[in-house]
Design a protein around this nucleic acid. Structure first.
Lengths: 125, 125
DNA sequence: CTAATAACTTTCAATATGCAAGTGCCGATA
DNA sequence: TATCGGCACTTGCATATTGAAAGTTATTAG
């Protein structure tokens, strides 16, 4: 409490978006990279554990996967649930906010299938 | 015709996708970054010229914009059309393939508006 | 002659990615 | 008891990508 760091907040008068107040931009600030949406795809398809996520055919690096899961948790798209103690192990589950990305995945899947013949889906995406 | 480059193709027996044959993955291989879909958003909204694209509120760096436009052209989402000579200047126009991304943008826009109150749209996206 | 404009390109420091190897904790096996 | 293997990560380090700023080229306006 002695120094002023993090105490001055100006009563949240400004929403303060990273790049702009465009909803597409703010969506891309979270999932605009080559891996995040693939992790979400796997979670939508019912995968829950690290081992399952890392064994997808795209071969995500383990540090990247850990980093993305952490970010998704911070952003509220995913929650971690302990499924055992000693050592603590966790499962990852989509929140409502994460589930709500399904239409985005579906739109991308449809575009990919339309324009890249040979691509194919294994489940309902 | 004298050297064999581009003649040996093994009858296209293997589709050879970058990471996997998942349509979402292949879509992300093109537009899985923080900027590409914003460029497409602007083109969907009717912007055509470099100056217009670079003056969007997100402030894309000029080298990144040039790089993305080149990639979008290579991937067939955009075509360059000369609108003057000496010096040659070009406008960028979405192909059908590029236009077909509209549902993806719409889904992202809806998700952003739903989960980030304060974001707002200026046109029909 | 000088300045301005458009559409890029170049340079270079900072950040992100990707691969491999390592860590901590356990339970099963020899 | 010692070792092995599995799981969920973490760490180190080389390479690739990004971003800010300045530079380039051609042409027109003053």
């Amino acid at each position: 409490m002695t120094n002023g760091q993090m105490t001055e907040k100006k009563a949240d008068s400004e929403p303060k978006f990273e790049r702009s107040c465009c909803p597409i931009t703010n969506t891309l600030d979270i999932l605009g990279d080559k891996w995040t949406l693939l992790v979400i795809r796997d979670l939508v398809l019912g995968k829950k554990r690290y081992r399952e996520l890392i064994s997808s055919p795209e071969k995500i690096a383990s540090n990247i996967l850990a980093n993305r899961l952490k970010r998704l948790e911070v952003c509220g798209l995913v929650t971690r649930q302990a499924y055992q103690q000693n050592p603590s192990r966790y499962e990852y589950v989509l929140t409502r906010k994460g589930e709500d990305l399904r239409p985005v995945l579906e739109a991308m899947s449809r575009w990919g299938q339309e324009h890249y013949p040979g691509t194919m889906i294994f489940s309902k995406l």
